[in-house]
Simulated scan of single mutants.
Amino acid sequence: MGLGKTLQTISLLGYLHEFRGITGPHMVVAPKSTLGNWMKEIRRFCPVLRTVKLLGNQDERKHIREDLLVAGKFDVCVTSFEMAIKEKTALRRFSWRYVIIDEAHRIKNENSLLSKTMRLYHANYRLLITGTPLQMTRLLDILEDYLMFRAYQYCHIDGNTGGEERDAKIEAFNQPGSSKFIFLLSTRVGGLGINLATVDIVILYDSDWNPQVDLQAQHRAHRIGQKKEVQVFCFCTEYPIEEKVIERAYKKLPFDALVIQQGRLAEQKTVNKDVLLQMVRFGAEMVFSSKDNTLTD
Protein backbone atom coordinates (compact mmCIF):
# COMPACT_ATOMS: atom_id res chain seq x y z
CA MET A 1 0.00 0.00 0.00
CA GLY A 2 3.05 2.26 -0.07
CA LEU A 3 3.03 3.00 3.65
CA GLY A 4 6.67 2.04 4.13
CA LYS A 5 5.94 -0.99 6.32
CA THR A 6 8.59 -3.18 4.67
CA LEU A 7 11.35 -0.59 4.97
CA GLN A 8 10.47 0.22 8.58
CA THR A 9 10.62 -3.46 9.45
CA ILE A 10 13.98 -3.89 7.72
CA SER A 11 15.22 -0.83 9.60
CA LEU A 12 14.27 -2.50 12.87
CA LEU A 13 16.18 -5.67 11.99
CA GLY A 14 19.16 -3.63 10.84
CA TYR A 15 19.16 -1.64 14.07
CA LEU A 16 19.08 -4.82 16.14
CA HIS A 17 21.99 -6.23 14.12
CA GLU A 18 24.19 -3.12 13.94
CA PHE A 19 23.58 -1.42 17.28
CA ARG A 20 22.34 -4.12 19.64
CA GLY A 21 24.33 -7.09 18.38
CA ILE A 22 21.17 -9.16 17.88
CA THR A 23 21.66 -11.10 14.66
CA GLY A 24 18.57 -13.26 14.83
CA PRO A 25 17.22 -15.58 13.83
CA HIS A 26 14.13 -13.73 12.63
CA MET A 27 11.26 -15.06 10.53
CA VAL A 28 9.19 -13.00 8.10
CA VAL A 29 5.88 -14.58 7.06
CA ALA A 30 4.23 -12.82 4.13
CA PRO A 31 2.01 -13.44 1.09
CA LYS A 32 3.79 -15.49 -1.58
CA SER A 33 3.56 -12.65 -4.09
CA THR A 34 5.58 -10.32 -1.85
CA LEU A 35 8.49 -12.63 -0.95
CA GLY A 36 10.58 -11.48 -3.90
CA ASN A 37 10.15 -7.86 -2.85
CA TRP A 38 11.11 -8.69 0.74
CA MET A 39 14.32 -10.37 -0.45
CA LYS A 40 15.15 -7.49 -2.82
CA GLU A 41 14.54 -4.79 -0.22
CA ILE A 42 16.60 -6.57 2.46
CA ARG A 43 19.52 -6.94 0.03
CA ARG A 44 19.17 -3.29 -0.96
CA PHE A 45 18.80 -1.60 2.42
CA CYS A 46 20.48 -4.03 4.82
CA PRO A 47 22.80 -6.38 2.90
CA VAL A 48 24.57 -7.38 6.11
CA LEU A 49 21.57 -9.59 6.97
CA ARG A 50 21.95 -13.14 5.69
CA THR A 51 18.53 -13.94 4.29
CA VAL A 52 17.05 -17.29 3.22
CA LYS A 53 13.80 -17.66 1.27
CA LEU A 54 11.92 -20.82 2.19
CA LEU A 55 9.80 -21.54 -0.86
CA GLY A 56 9.61 -24.09 -3.67
CA ASN A 57 8.72 -27.70 -4.36
CA GLN A 58 9.46 -30.56 -1.99
CA ASP A 59 13.00 -31.19 -3.27
CA GLU A 60 13.92 -27.51 -3.23
CA ARG A 61 12.59 -27.09 0.30
CA LYS A 62 14.58 -30.15 1.44
CA HIS A 63 17.77 -28.55 0.13
CA ILE A 64 16.93 -25.28 1.89
CA ARG A 65 16.13 -27.03 5.18
CA GLU A 66 19.29 -29.14 5.20
CA ASP A 67 21.86 -26.75 3.73
CA LEU A 68 20.67 -23.18 4.22
CA LEU A 69 18.21 -23.07 7.10
CA VAL A 70 20.85 -24.06 9.63
CA ALA A 71 21.50 -22.31 12.93
CA GLY A 72 24.36 -19.85 12.55
CA LYS A 73 24.16 -19.75 8.74
CA PHE A 74 21.31 -17.26 8.37
CA ASP A 75 19.79 -14.21 10.09
CA VAL A 76 16.36 -13.91 8.47
CA CYS A 77 14.05 -16.55 7.03
CA VAL A 78 11.48 -15.18 4.60
CA THR A 79 8.59 -17.53 3.86
CA SER A 80 4.94 -17.56 2.81
CA PHE A 81 1.79 -18.26 4.79
CA GLU A 82 1.47 -21.65 3.10
CA MET A 83 5.07 -22.62 3.87
CA ALA A 84 4.69 -21.51 7.49
CA ILE A 85 1.98 -24.16 7.76
CA LYS A 86 3.61 -26.89 5.67
CA GLU A 87 7.10 -26.50 7.15
CA LYS A 88 6.05 -25.90 10.75
CA THR A 89 8.01 -28.95 11.95
CA ALA A 90 11.28 -27.56 10.58
CA LEU A 91 10.56 -23.97 11.59
CA ARG A 92 9.61 -24.88 15.15
CA ARG A 93 13.18 -26.08 15.76
CA PHE A 94 14.29 -22.47 16.08
CA SER A 95 13.78 -20.02 18.89
CA TRP A 96 13.02 -16.88 16.90
CA ARG A 97 13.95 -13.41 18.06
CA TYR A 98 11.21 -11.79 15.97
CA VAL A 99 8.35 -13.44 14.13
CA ILE A 100 7.11 -10.79 11.68
CA ILE A 101 3.77 -11.28 9.98
CA ASP A 102 3.04 -9.15 6.93
CA GLU A 103 -0.60 -8.48 6.01
CA ALA A 104 -1.38 -9.53 9.58
CA HIS A 105 -5.13 -9.06 9.17
CA ARG A 106 -4.97 -12.61 7.72
CA ILE A 107 -4.73 -13.94 11.29
CA LYS A 108 -7.60 -11.85 12.65
CA ASN A 109 -9.65 -15.03 12.91
CA GLU A 110 -7.95 -16.77 15.82
CA ASN A 111 -9.53 -20.09 14.84
CA SER A 112 -7.99 -20.13 11.35
CA LEU A 113 -5.27 -22.66 10.57
CA LEU A 114 -2.73 -19.90 9.92
CA SER A 115 -3.48 -18.17 13.21
CA LYS A 116 -3.22 -21.41 15.17
CA THR A 117 0.04 -22.33 13.43
CA MET A 118 1.67 -18.96 14.10
CA ARG A 119 0.98 -19.36 17.81
CA LEU A 120 3.01 -22.57 17.82
CA TYR A 121 6.28 -20.82 17.07
CA HIS A 122 8.60 -19.83 19.91
CA ALA A 123 9.58 -16.16 19.69
CA ASN A 124 10.79 -13.35 21.93
CA TYR A 125 8.67 -10.86 20.04
CA ARG A 126 5.95 -10.91 17.39
CA LEU A 127 5.48 -7.98 15.03
CA LEU A 128 2.21 -7.65 13.11
CA ILE A 129 2.28 -5.29 10.13
CA THR A 130 -0.73 -4.41 8.01
CA GLY A 131 -2.17 -1.54 6.04
CA THR A 132 -5.68 -2.91 6.51
CA PRO A 133 -7.47 -1.75 9.68
CA LEU A 134 -7.90 -4.53 12.19
CA GLN A 135 -7.58 0.04 14.82
CA MET A 136 -11.49 0.35 14.76
CA THR A 137 -12.00 -1.20 18.21
CA ARG A 138 -9.37 -3.92 17.90
CA LEU A 139 -7.05 -1.90 20.13
CA LEU A 140 -9.62 -2.11 22.91
CA ASP A 141 -9.49 -5.90 22.64
CA ILE A 142 -5.71 -5.79 23.01
CA LEU A 143 -5.99 -3.56 26.09
CA GLU A 144 -8.66 -5.90 27.44
CA ASP A 145 -6.25 -8.83 27.12
CA TYR A 146 -3.67 -6.87 29.10
CA LEU A 147 -6.16 -6.02 31.86
CA MET A 148 -7.15 -9.68 32.11
CA PHE A 149 -3.47 -10.62 32.33
CA ARG A 150 -3.00 -8.14 35.18
CA ALA A 151 -6.25 -9.29 36.86
CA TYR A 152 -7.71 -5.76 36.84
CA GLN A 153 -11.49 -5.36 37.09
CA TYR A 154 -12.84 -3.42 34.09
CA CYS A 155 -15.82 -2.59 31.88
CA HIS A 156 -15.73 -2.63 28.08
CA ILE A 157 -18.18 -0.97 25.69
CA ASP A 158 -17.91 -0.72 21.91
CA GLY A 159 -20.30 -0.64 18.96
CA ASN A 160 -21.17 -4.32 19.39
CA THR A 161 -22.39 -3.97 23.00
CA GLY A 162 -26.15 -4.38 23.44
CA GLY A 163 -28.29 -1.74 25.15
CA GLU A 164 -29.09 -3.66 28.35
CA GLU A 165 -25.51 -4.86 28.78
CA ARG A 166 -24.29 -1.34 28.17
CA ASP A 167 -26.54 0.14 30.88
CA ALA A 168 -25.58 -2.59 33.33
CA LYS A 169 -21.85 -1.91 32.84
CA ILE A 170 -22.26 1.84 33.30
CA GLU A 171 -24.27 1.32 36.48
CA ALA A 172 -21.76 -1.20 37.86
CA PHE A 173 -18.87 1.17 37.21
CA ASN A 174 -20.60 4.17 38.85
CA GLN A 175 -21.58 2.28 41.99
CA PRO A 176 -20.01 3.69 45.21
CA GLY A 177 -16.97 1.58 46.08
CA SER A 178 -17.05 -0.19 42.70
CA SER A 179 -14.25 -2.70 42.13
CA LYS A 180 -14.05 -1.72 38.44
CA PHE A 181 -10.61 -0.20 37.86
CA ILE A 182 -11.00 1.09 34.30
CA PHE A 183 -13.69 1.68 31.69
CA LEU A 184 -12.72 0.88 28.08
CA LEU A 185 -14.77 2.50 25.35
CA SER A 186 -14.27 3.65 21.78
CA THR A 187 -14.37 7.38 21.13
CA ARG A 188 -17.23 6.93 18.65
CA VAL A 189 -19.35 5.18 21.27
CA GLY A 190 -18.15 7.56 23.97
CA GLY A 191 -20.35 10.42 22.78
CA LEU A 192 -23.62 8.51 22.91
CA GLY A 193 -25.43 9.03 26.20
CA ILE A 194 -22.79 7.65 28.56
CA ASN A 195 -22.54 9.16 32.03
CA LEU A 196 -19.32 8.36 33.86
CA ALA A 197 -19.41 10.98 36.60
CA THR A 198 -17.17 8.86 38.85
CA VAL A 199 -14.26 9.04 36.38
CA ASP A 200 -11.53 11.55 37.25
CA ILE A 201 -8.87 10.45 34.72
CA VAL A 202 -9.48 10.21 30.96
CA ILE A 203 -6.81 8.65 28.72
CA LEU A 204 -7.06 9.03 24.95
CA TYR A 205 -5.04 5.99 23.89
CA ASP A 206 -5.85 6.27 20.18
CA SER A 207 -6.99 9.68 18.94
CA ASP A 208 -9.68 10.24 16.32
CA TRP A 209 -9.23 12.33 13.17
CA ASN A 210 -12.21 14.41 14.30
CA PRO A 211 -11.30 16.36 17.46
CA GLN A 212 -14.98 16.77 18.33
CA VAL A 213 -15.23 13.00 18.79
CA ASP A 214 -12.38 13.08 21.29
CA LEU A 215 -14.01 16.00 23.10
CA GLN A 216 -17.32 14.17 23.32
CA ALA A 217 -15.58 11.16 24.79
CA GLN A 218 -13.86 13.37 27.38
CA HIS A 219 -17.15 14.96 28.31
CA ARG A 220 -18.47 11.62 29.56
CA ALA A 221 -16.51 12.44 32.73
CA HIS A 222 -17.58 16.10 32.87
CA ARG A 223 -21.10 15.33 34.03
CA ILE A 224 -23.44 16.58 36.74
CA GLY A 225 -22.42 14.72 39.88
CA GLN A 226 -18.69 14.90 39.20
CA LYS A 227 -16.98 15.75 42.49
CA LYS A 228 -13.33 15.61 41.43
CA GLU A 229 -11.06 17.49 39.09
CA VAL A 230 -10.86 15.59 35.80
CA GLN A 231 -7.43 15.07 34.24
CA VAL A 232 -7.16 14.26 30.53
CA PHE A 233 -4.10 12.58 29.02
CA CYS A 234 -3.54 12.04 25.31
CA PHE A 235 -1.03 9.30 24.44
CA CYS A 236 1.00 9.96 21.30
CA THR A 237 3.94 8.16 19.71
CA GLU A 238 6.59 10.59 18.53
CA TYR A 239 7.25 10.95 14.77
CA PRO A 240 4.77 8.50 13.12
CA ILE A 241 1.44 9.50 11.57
CA GLU A 242 -0.27 9.51 14.97
CA GLU A 243 1.57 12.74 15.79
CA LYS A 244 0.15 14.31 12.62
CA VAL A 245 -3.36 13.16 13.53
CA ILE A 246 -3.21 15.02 16.83
CA GLU A 247 -1.60 18.05 15.20
CA ARG A 248 -4.39 18.25 12.62
CA ALA A 249 -7.01 17.75 15.33
CA TYR A 250 -5.77 20.74 17.31
CA LYS A 251 -5.72 22.83 14.15
CA LYS A 252 -9.34 21.93 13.43
CA LEU A 253 -10.74 23.07 16.78
CA PRO A 254 -10.69 26.85 16.11
CA PHE A 255 -12.47 26.31 12.78
CA ASP A 256 -15.07 24.14 14.49
CA ALA A 257 -15.61 26.90 17.00
CA LEU A 258 -16.10 29.37 14.15
CA VAL A 259 -18.76 27.19 12.50
CA ILE A 260 -20.57 26.38 15.74
CA GLN A 261 -20.59 29.96 16.92
CA GLN A 262 -21.30 31.58 13.57
CA GLY A 263 -24.55 33.01 14.96
CA ARG A 264 -22.48 35.19 17.27
CA LEU A 265 -20.57 36.47 14.25
CA ALA A 266 -23.69 37.39 12.33
CA GLU A 267 -23.19 41.08 13.06
CA GLN A 268 -19.69 40.82 11.62
CA LYS A 269 -20.52 39.78 8.07
CA THR A 270 -16.94 38.76 7.28
CA VAL A 271 -14.07 37.48 9.37
CA ASN A 272 -10.99 39.61 8.88
CA LYS A 273 -7.62 38.24 7.80
CA ASP A 274 -5.99 38.64 11.22
CA VAL A 275 -8.62 36.50 12.93
CA LEU A 276 -8.25 33.71 10.38
CA LEU A 277 -4.45 33.82 10.64
CA GLN A 278 -4.66 33.65 14.42
CA MET A 279 -6.93 30.61 14.19
CA VAL A 280 -4.58 28.82 11.78
CA ARG A 281 -1.58 29.50 14.02
CA PHE A 282 -3.36 28.41 17.18
CA GLY A 283 -3.13 24.66 16.62
CA ALA A 284 0.42 24.78 15.29
CA GLU A 285 1.66 26.76 18.29
CA MET A 286 0.04 24.26 20.66
CA VAL A 287 1.95 21.42 19.02
CA PHE A 288 5.34 22.94 18.30
CA SER A 289 5.83 25.13 21.38
CA SER A 290 6.01 22.11 23.70
CA LYS A 291 9.62 21.04 24.15
CA ASP A 292 8.79 17.82 25.98
CA ASN A 293 6.17 16.75 23.39
CA THR A 294 3.38 16.97 25.99
CA LEU A 295 0.37 19.08 25.10
CA THR A 296 -1.32 20.88 27.99
CA ASP A 297 -3.93 23.57 28.18
Rank of each mutant, 00 (worst) to 15 (best):
T79Y: 01
A249H: 07
R44L: 10
T187G: 10
D141W: 06
V29K: 04
K116Q: 08
D208V: 08
H63V: 15
P240F: 06
R61L: 10
G24S: 02
T117N: 10
T117L: 02
L192F: 14
G263A: 08
L13Y: 01
I129Y: 00
V259L: 15
T161S: 07
K40A: 14
I22V: 15
C234E: 09
D206F: 04
K108L: 03
F94K: 03
I170E: 08
K169V: 07
S179E: 15
F233S: 11
A257K: 14
T137Y: 12
F149I: 12
W209K: 06
V199Q: 02
G4F: 01
L204K: 03
H219S: 14
I182L: 13
S112Y: 00
V28C: 04
F81A: 07
Q175D: 10
Y152S: 13
F149H: 10
S80N: 09
S290F: 07
F173Q: 08
K40V: 14
Y125R: 15
V76E: 01
F255R: 05
R20V: 09
T51P: 05
M1P: 15
F183N: 07
V189C: 12
Q231G: 12
T9D: 05
Q153R: 15
L12R: 10
E165Y: 11
R188Q: 13
L69F: 06
K169S: 12
A266V: 13
T79C: 09
E60A: 12
I142Y: 00
E82Y: 08
L13K: 00
P31G: 06
S289C: 02
A249N: 04
L184R: 07
R20M: 09
Q226T: 11
L3H: 11
I224G: 10
L277G: 09
Q58M: 15
R220F: 11
T130H: 05
L134F: 11
Y250P: 07
I142K: 02
F19N: 14
E41W: 01
A284Q: 11
R44E: 11
G24D: 05
V78T: 01
D141V: 05
L134N: 11
G159T: 11
E144R: 07
N272M: 07
L192I: 15
I85A: 07
D158T: 07
K108W: 00
L127H: 01
D145S: 12
E165R: 09
G36C: 01
H156F: 15
D206H: 00
V259H: 11
L3N: 02
L147N: 03
E110P: 03
I129F: 05
G2H: 04
E247C: 03
P25Q: 02
D145H: 00
Y154C: 08
V271G: 03
I241H: 11
R150F: 13
N195I: 00
L13P: 02
I10F: 02
N174Q: 10
G163E: 15
Q58T: 15
R92L: 10
K244F: 14
Q216M: 00
Q8P: 00
D297T: 12
I170Y: 03
G191N: 03
G4C: 03
V245N: 04
H17W: 12
E267A: 13
G36L: 07
E66W: 12
N195Y: 03
C77T: 09
I85D: 06
T137N: 12
L91M: 04
H26Q: 05
I224M: 09
A217C: 06
